[in-house]
Amino acid sequence: MSKNSPIIEIKDLHVWYRTYGGFSKVLNGVNLYVDKGEKIGVVGEAGCGKTTTMRSILRILPEGQSHTPQGEILYHGKDILKMDRKDLQHVRTSGVSMIFQEPSAALNPVFTVGTQIYDVIKYSEAGKGCSKEKIKQMALQAIKEVMIPDPERIFDCYPNQLSGGMKQRICIAMAIVTPREVLIADEPGTALDVTIQDQVHRTLKELVEKKGMSLIMITHSLGVARELTDRVYVMYAGNVVETARTQDLFANPSHPYTRGLMSSVPRLAGGGLAEGIYGHIPDYLNPPQGCRFHPRCPQAKECCKRQKPPIVDLGNGHKVACFLDAEVV
């Protein structure tokens, strides 16, 4: 762990959504940080709040519907949630960039990919005062960097002329074309086939390392997190339930949810499948009291139903939010 202050630090973040049935209390106190040059993974199942957390970093949640009652997101010590328009614009254009899950939805179908990359540079600080020719060169360079052969031809293509893997590479190119500190990748490989996913992940990892950026990798696949990241956060129902360095987490998962998740993954080594985790993710309109995992937890006790579990430090940055570990320590 570095002594310097982290680039992004999320403290006790709560996000609610307005719905007809009242507030849907999705995030319930998320704590997370990213150091410079670090690759972290945020793992969890669908609907656990991974994307909501990441979108609130860039403040791109639907404004009228989302509500942040509590918490702060510090970017170099400055709270993003309280920033004015100009500062926020600065974060978006030269601080943090994001890659979305569905490349075909992230790209505008009526402009060529070249134009879209061009615009990213034009309105960023790096592109200020550059000539048209210079900007185009930068765009072509970015396309080349994501291992697309023949960048000149691709520059004039519309998104529908490209394959899914190609489109995701273009999205990566857009995210890295201007210097950024943090790259948020929201399941960049999920919509792709395994062999293509492997290529995209490799490209992403190489570029992030080359440029010294920090990476926040959101994924539902434990395997992807293991291969790409240094440190992992496991999320369940709007809470970070466990965090540790990647190898520690896989060697010694502590939270009952992490263990259940790991045993549910089909192994290449065979040996059948485990039972899975009983039940499903809670209704956020009326989330369970106490630990949000207790209705599904095989080891739930009385106190789990009433109190929010404490965060227990197991050493070496391995933290787990569970009463079971509180007893042991």
Binding site: V194, T195, I196, Q197, D198, Q199, H201, S221, L222, G223, V224, R226, E227, F250, M262, V265, R267, L268, A269
Partner: peptide
Amino acid sequence: LSSIPVISEEEERLKPAKVVS
């Protein structure tokens, strides 16, 4: 097979030598 992300060392050994896709 070599493109599958796996979660343990044991599985890693079962994969064929890395074939770059």
